[in-house]
Design a protein around this nucleic acid. Structure first.
Lengths: 112, 112
DNA sequence: CGGGCAATTGACTTATTGGTTAAATAACGT
DNA sequence: ACGTTATTTAACCAATAAGTCAATTGCCCG
């Protein structure tokens, strides 16, 4: 699966988005991440595996804890993709057309 | 499924993203949308159904053609979500923290 | 009317997802 | 070494996704 698809797929689950929101406040262990949810710990563990595969989190071991922290770079790529379409909903159609012409090579970082 | 999840899920497929890219250049019928892909017409029809359910496209009938056009509003919502995290990857952590406080009043403070 | 193009629907297959419980692994603190 | 805590893995299940081909629907036109 390509990187952008993996990112969007990872974000398509509210539990995973909630986990990212929690991690935005700082590193946390699996058990703590699981607390707000009614699902089992293995289920959370799998969600974390998905987030890690999409490179949205990184993990490190500290004694018996696996600490997770947010890696937001893939989100930047997704934001770039959406930014192109912002030109559409803002009515700057030709600008989007130009972006899409170039979008085959590579997308670049920018700010909204 | 909530709106944001539906949007991200719809975007998590490269075929669907390519269809949106094509539609950004203007309305098109199903047959024309299908041309660049090696998959069958029913498969494309199903992708369009997903995009429509996510409200990323609208359809209208013109004689024997079903014309599709881009509706970018749901993308704006997704972009808003990502924008919050842009504060993270740009290093403005406390700004993101404030955003998340407002967005998810329910989340509890980290103790560790 | 009947033929043909456009698109969808139906029936089916296969793979993936998200969840479960139970067992295994790993590190800690006696 | 032992029991406790933290987390993952294994095995399984139900639902969904993405594709196929065949049949159907809807519309146009000679």
């Amino acid at each position: 699966m390509d990187r952008l698809s993996a990112t969007f797929a990872a974000l398509a689950d509210p539990t995973r988005r909630a986990i990212l929101a929690r991690l935005a406040k700082g590193e946390a262990a699996v058990g703590e991440l699981a607390k707000p949810f009614s699902i089992s710990l293995p289920a959370v563990s799998r969600h974390l595996r998905v987030l890690q595969a999409a490179r949205l989190i990184e993990r490190r071991v500290d004694a018996q804890w696996r600490l997770c922290r947010l890696r937001a770079e893939p989100l930047a790529q997704a934001a770039d993709w959406l930014d192109a379409y912002s030109r559409f909903w803002e009515g700057r159609f030709d600008s989007l057309a130009r972006y899409l012409e170039k979008t085959q090579p590579k997308s670049r970082r920018n700010k909204r």
